[in-house]
């Protein structure tokens, strides 16, 4: 299987604090990779190095290599806007713009220069269908996105990310602010999205990782402890710390 992202010897410092230590990970194309680990262990930080969102944090120092399709995303010839177009992100708190549903989804395509109304209509419909939201909102496209429920807002954020046709979709605890039913819907959606996208998700919930993902990565105190196929990692973990964690002995 082709590895779409390859991370090697990645270190990240917040000022003096060594948040990510010597990390190495390959992410295969069109799979779901889940990050688990106790809170504060660096899952979000790691995820955010994959689309360079950490660049926005003052005092961050990153070294090592992160490659997308063989090209170093921290290299001089990578434009961060192009990278983020290819590696989309969905956040923990649904964060739709205070605009109409249509304008939320069209925001990305417009950024990248698409003005044609018919083309935008088509992209918006395709993205909303992709996020299983079309049937619910097709008559409300001009209503404010803030009038949607939390689960709908989160699916809108997924649609918004899909609208720029990314290759990789990063999701940082995208269901932790949602009710169980909305969570289930999004999990279902994620499994469908796997057909066309590579998905990397952080989850606060081991069961979710076990339910949804193909591969699972366990983090602890800024270290990447173990990465393996989900079934293997949960049934026969190699590292004792992984076993302690998945059997609920801490965290």
């Amino acid at each position: 299987m082709k590895q779409i992202m390859e991370i090697d010897r990645l270190n990240l410092h917040y000022g003096e604090f060594h948040a990510l230590k010597e990390m190495k990970l390959d992410i295969p194309e069109r799979t779901i990779t889940a990050f688990i680990g106790p809170s504060g262990c660096g899952k979000s930080t790691f995820l955010r190095t994959l689309n360079r969102m950490n660049d926005l944090v003052p005092g961050v120092r990153i070294d090592g290599s992160v490659k997308l399709d063989g090209q170093d995303i921290y290299g001089a010839d990578t434009e961060v806007e192009t990278l983020r177009k290819r590696v989309g992100m969905v956040f923990q708190q649904p964060n739709p713009f205070p605009k109409s549903i249509f304008d939320n989804v069209a925001y990305g395509p417009r950024l990248h220069g698409i003005r044609d109304k018919a083309r935008l209509n088509e992209i918006v419909e395709r993205s909303l269908r992709g996020a299983s939201l079309w049937e619910e909102v097709k008559d409300l496209l001009n209503k404010s996105a803030l009038s949607l429920s939390g689960g709908q807002q989160q699916r809108l954020c997924i649609a918004r990310a899909l609208a720029v046709e990314p290759d990789v979709l990063l999701m940082d605890e995208a269901t932790s602010a949602l009710d169980p039913l909305s969570t289930l819907k999004i999990e279902e959606l994620v499994r469908e999205l796997k057909q066309d996208y590579t998905i990397v998700m952080v989850t606060h919930n081991m069961h979710q990782a076990a339910r949804v993902s193909d591969r699972t990565v366990f983090f602890l105190n800024g270290e990447l402890v173990e990465a393996d196929e989900t079934e293997k990692l949960f049934s026969t973990p190699v590292d004792a710390r992984t076993e302690d964690y998945i059997t609920g002995r801490f965290g």
Binding site: R84, N95, V164
Partner: peptide, 17 residues
């Protein structure tokens, strides 16, 4: 809200956009 700016940057927007 912090998410507003992050949401925009994550879609590939420049600072000015």
């Amino acid at each position: 809200p912090r998410g507003l700016k992050e949401g925009s940057y994550a879609l590939g927007a420049t600072r000015w956009q």
